[in-house]
Design a protein around this nucleic acid. Structure first.
Ligand SMILES: [Mn+2]
Ligand SMILES: [Mn+2]
Ligand SMILES: [Zn+2]
Ligand SMILES: [Zn+2]
Lengths: 154, 154
DNA sequence: TAGTAAATGAAAATCATTTTCATTAAGGAG
DNA sequence: CTCCTTAATGAAAATGATTTTCATTTACTA
């Protein structure tokens, strides 16, 4: 049984269920996202796919990423370096739901999910309070800590 | 004594201390930021200043905003609508340090600082743990909750 | 196998932001 | 107050990421 069989096997289904086709470019883009633990930009994904499939167009990468975000398979982030960065939500090499620690200087990004004891419970509570008070249906949160990494501090 | 005397009176000093000049465009941009509780984009600020001072250039707005961010007077955010949005840190019409609740549909942004009891303390604790574990000096955090507001839900 | 709609890629367009460069103006020295 | 130096400004051009357009290709269906 191949590793990560569950999610990868699911991809084609998820597309077909929506009347969409699971094409080579789409498969390759997902493969790249599945195989990295970085937060890649559209261009970085394009370059990576390009090695295996030189015919790919940057346009297709953008279109596919929009689609994957829309389908809820990929998270899109803006870490402040002027371009969107993408991360596969169910990635075998990464923690599941996690937050980010970002170096303001070198832009290094660290995923973490070893939450402090009460962290998860508190977030649930905050979401509940916000939902009630502002009559919002909360669907998610973005939590990032900014700082300077050791290398950048010397 | 004018309202918000403290901060506004401070602006010229802060500029001069850095060998920078406190010019009319800079003053006007700060006035706009000081007088709104929205999260304005560069263009929105430009349009607002333009009414009082039609000579202003969009370039100057961008340059001034960069400077204000660099000086630590203004926060720059990307809420995912493709442009940066800015907020004066010490704004008389706003809570001090606060987090955001964002409607994914209409992009409405709600400031909140009525943190749940243990919220502030927990964040401190998380920052401490992250700093130690990853050898980062933490300088801040970005916490946003996403959801759908009542209007957008009907 | 043929037909139909989805998907693709190249090129052009768009949009926010940055750079360039000639001109203006702030504020200190005299 | 006037001169001088240098910071600040604005218009126009450049840039860079993302989107749109459109002709062509491809996937799946009948
Ligand atoms: Mn991550
Ligand atoms: Mn705010
Ligand atoms: Zn760093
Ligand atoms: Zn809304």
């Amino acid at each position: 049984m191949p590793r990560h069989a569950f999610d990868s096997d699911d991809w084609p289904k998820r597309f077909r269920r929506r009347g969409l086709r699971f094409t080579e470019p789409r498969r390759l883009i997902l493969d790249i996202l599945n195989g990295t633990n970085e937060h890649l930009s559209a261009e970085e994904i394009y370059l990576a796919v390009h090695k295996k499939y030189p015919g790919i167009g940057l346009t297709t990468v953008y279109r596919t990423l929009d689609l994957l975000v829309e389908m809820g398979l990929v998270h899109q982030f803006q870490f402040g370096d002027g371009r969107s960065r993408y991360e596969l939500i169910h990635n075998p090499g990464k923690p599941g739901h996690h937050h980010h620690l970002v170096c303001s200087r070198c832009k290094r990004i660290i995923d973490y999910d070893d939450f402090v004891e009460e962290e998860v419970e508190l977030i649930r509570k905050v979401e509940e309070a916000l939902a009630k008070k502002h009559d919002f249906s909360i669907e998610g949160h973005l939590i990032q800590f900014y700082g300077i990494c050791r290398e950048c501090r010397e």
